[in-house]
Design a protein around this nucleic acid. Structure first.
Lengths: 350, 350
DNA sequence: TTGTATGCGTTATCAC
DNA sequence: GTGATAACGCATACAA
C-alpha cells in the first residue's frame, strides 16, 4: 500500500522523539529511558519498521560487515576440497568477531554482471591462492585501503600471508619412512599446474603450484632420487590411477609411497590392494592433510595434519587486526605428524 | 598521507566538471564526450580515486548486489554434501545476471557478532531447508520487502519453493527393482531428524526431515513392508554401518537395497562385499542424487539423478523475477532414473 | 537522557 | 553532453 518504506525518521516522528533518539533505541549505544524506548518500539511496530536499513547504516559507519573470499577456481571444484571447506569454517569463525560474513567471489570476471573485488561493498578480502588474473583488481582494492590477506599464495609485497610449512612437514613424513627402513620409495604428487594431465614427473617439468613444489621438495630432501607421479587432482580416483601407474612400473614395487594428499593416499591404498599388496605389510602409504576420508576405514592414514581450520581463523584475525589499523602480520603454520596404521617397517611382510 | 579518501566530488572538482558528470563517466549510463571522459579519468588517477564506493552506491541505488544464502547447519557440514555444493554452483550462476554474489549466512544466531538475515545488506535471500529457528528473522526480511526463496523446505505461505519429486522418483527406482523380480528389499534412509542415532525404523518413529520421509514413502509405495534402517548421515561410512546392519539381520539377506543417497549406497556396496555378497549378482543396490562418488569405480550406481545445479539456478531465477516485481513462482523439479551396473535381475547369481 | 545539525558518497531526475 | 538539485537512510558529535 504505502508508497514508501518507513524510515527511522518516520518512527521518530510518530513516537514524538528525535531521529537520533530513535536510532539509539535500535543501536543500543546509549542509554534510553524505558518509556522512550517503548514509545519508539510501539511506533516502529505501528509503521512496520523493522530496523535500520543495513545499506544506509553501512554507508554511515563505513563498514559493511562483509568480507570477500576469492577463489581461483570454480566454486564447485573449490568445495570438493575438504581442506578448503575446513578453512572456510575457520574463516567464518575468524571474521565473526568483526560482525562480518563471507561473500563468495570468483577470480575470473567473465560472468557478465557478477560482483567483483572492486564492485562489492567489502570491508576486507581474503584470497585463497592467488593467480595472476587477480593482480589488477587487487591494486584497486588496496588503493581503497581495504585489508587483504592471502592464504597459501603470493599476492605481492606488503600483503600478509598465511602459509604452511609444507616442505618441512613432508620431509618429516619422509624421515619417518626412512627410519622404518624404506629405501624404494615412490611419490604421488598433486598437479604441477592447472590443467595438468597425470604422468611421471621428469626433471624438466616446471611446477607452477607452490604446494606441489614445496611438498615435493620436502620428500626429495630425504629421498632425492624417488620417482614421482603427478596426479590430475586430489581425489581418490586420481590416487587409484596414480597408484596403478606406480605399482605397474618396471622393477620391484616400492615399499613405500608418499602421497601429497590424504585423498590421493586413499586411492594409492586401493591400487595397492588391487595389485595384491597389503598395506602396510607390503607397502607403506602416507598422506597429507589429516582430513577424515569417508570410506577409508579401517585404515587410519599416517599423515601430516595441517591446521586447516586454523588457517581460516588466522586469516580472519589478520583481517581484524588490519581493520583496527594494526600492521599486517604474516604467519607460518605448522603441520603435525600423525602415525596411523598405513606405515610399517620395511620388509615387515609375514 | 591524505587524511581522507578522495570522493567523486573531489575528482569532479579537479577535472573541472560537475559531480554528476564524473559519476556518469564511471557508470557509463549516459554518453560523455571523449574529452570530458579523459579529463575525469586523469583527475581520478591523480587523486588515486578508484571508482565509486560500493556502500554509497548501494544506498543510492537501493541494491547491494548481495544475495544471502542461509543454511540450517554448520558450514562445514553443509559443504560436505556434494548435492549442496552443486546447488551452490547453480545458485552462483543463477544470481550472476542480477550482478549479485552470495553471502553465506548461518541459521543459528549464536555467534556473537555474526551478520544475520536482518542485519546484512541483502537484496534477496535463499533458504536451504528451513528450520523453525528462522521464522522470526524471516518475518523481518519479508516485511522489508526482500524476496525470499526456499530450496527444499517450507517457509510458510507465500514464499516460493524449489522442490524435488522425491517420492515419485524413489518410487521409480523401487519399481525398477520390482521389474527385476526383487521381493526381499531393504531400505537405507537418511536421518529421521537432527541428531538421529542410526537404527531400524519402527512404525512409531516420527520423521522430521522431509526428504527422508518423501523418499521413504516413495519406496513404500512399491514395497510397503520393506524394513528400513536409518543412517546417521549421508556418508559412505554411515552407509557401511547401515549395510552391515542390513546384511547381519536375521533371515535370508535382501536381494536388493534402496539407499536414499549415493554415498549411503556406496557404503552399502562396501558392506555387501564385506559380507561376501557380490553386487549386483547377489544383491542389487540403488542410490539417490546422481553425484560422482569418488572412489566408487568401477561401480556405476543405479540411481536417481537429481537436478542439483538446476535447483540453484532456478532459485536464482526466482529471486531475479521477484526483484523485478514479478510473482513468486514455485517449482517442482524432477529426478531422472539412471541405470548403472549395481542392479540386476533377482537370482541372477551364477 | 534527549535533541539538533551535519555529512557519509553516490546517483536519478530533470533542466539546459 | 553537461550541470544543479535533491534525496538515499542513517549515526554521530555536540549541545541542551
Amino acid at each position: 500500500m504505502s508508497t514508501r518504506r518507513a524510515t527511522i525518521s518516520d518512527v521518530a516522528r510518530t513516537a514524538g522523539v528525535s531521529p537520533s533518539t530513535a536510532s539509539v533505541v535500535f543501536s543500543g549505544k546509549t542509554p534510553v529511558s524505558d518509556e522512550t524506548r517503548s514509545r519508539v518500539l510501539a511506533a516502529a511496530a505501528e509503521l512496520g519498521y523493522t530496523g535500520p536499513d543495513p545499506r544506509a547504516a553501512s554507508l554511515r559507519r563505513g563498514r559493511s560487515g562483509i568480507v570477500g573470499v576469492v577463489f581461483e577456481e570454480h566454486l564447485g571444484r573449490t568445495f570438493q576440497d575438504p581442506v578448503k571447506i575446513l578453512m572456510m569454517d575457520g574463516l567464518t569463525d575468524g571474521v565473526a568477531p568483526l560482525g562480518a560474513g563471507l561473500l563468495l567471489l570468483r577470480d575470473r570476471d567473465d560472468t557478465d554482471g557478477a560482483p567483483t573485488l572492486t564492485t562489492a561493498p567489502l570491508d576486507a578480502a581474503v584470497l585463497v591462492g592467488c593467480s595472476g588474473m587477480l593482480r589488477e583488481s587487487l591494486d584497486v582494492v588496496r588503493a581503497r585501503g581495504i585489508p587483504v590477506v592471502v592464504i597459501e599464495g603470493d599476492a605481492g609485497e606488503g600483503i600478509p600471508r598465511i602459509d604452511l610449512d609444507n616442505r618441512a612437514a613432508q620431509s618429516r613424513a619422509a624421515a619417518h619412512l626412512r627410519e622404518l627402513g624404506h629405501e624404494r620409495v615412490a611419490l604421488v604428487t598433486l598437479p604441477l599446474r592447472a590443467g595438468w594431465a597425470p604422468g611421471w614427473i621428469t626433471g624438466a617439468d616446471d611446477i607452477d603450484i607452490d604446494v606441489t613444489r614445496d611438498r615435493l621438495d620436502g620428500a626429495r630432501d630425504v629421498y632425492p632420487q624417488a620417482p614421482a607421479y603427478a596426479a590430475a587432482a586430489s581425489s581418490i580416483d586420481e590416487g587409484v590411477a596414480a597408484g596403478r601407474a606406480v605399482f605397474a612400473a618396471a622393477g620391484p614395487h616400492p615399499t613405500a609411497v608418499l602421497a601429497q594428499s590424504d585423498l590421493l593416499a586413499a586411492g594409492v591404498i586401493r591400487a595397492a590392494e588391487e595389485a595384491g599388496l597389503r598395506v602396510p605389510e607390503d607397502v607403506s602409504v602416507t598422506g597429507f592433510d589429516g582430513i577424515v576420508v569417508d570410506g577409508l576405514a579401517p585404515y587410519e592414514l599416517t599423515t601430516l595434519v595441517q591446521p586447516a581450520v586454523e588457517k581460516g581463523r588466522a586469516a580472519g584475525r589478520a583481517v581484524a587486526a588490519m581493520l583496527d589499523g594494526g600492521e599486517p602480520a604474516s604467519l607460518l603454520l605448522t603441520c603435525a605428524f600423525r602415525a596411523g596404521n598405513t606405515t610399517a617397517r620395511a620388509g615387515a611382510a609375514g
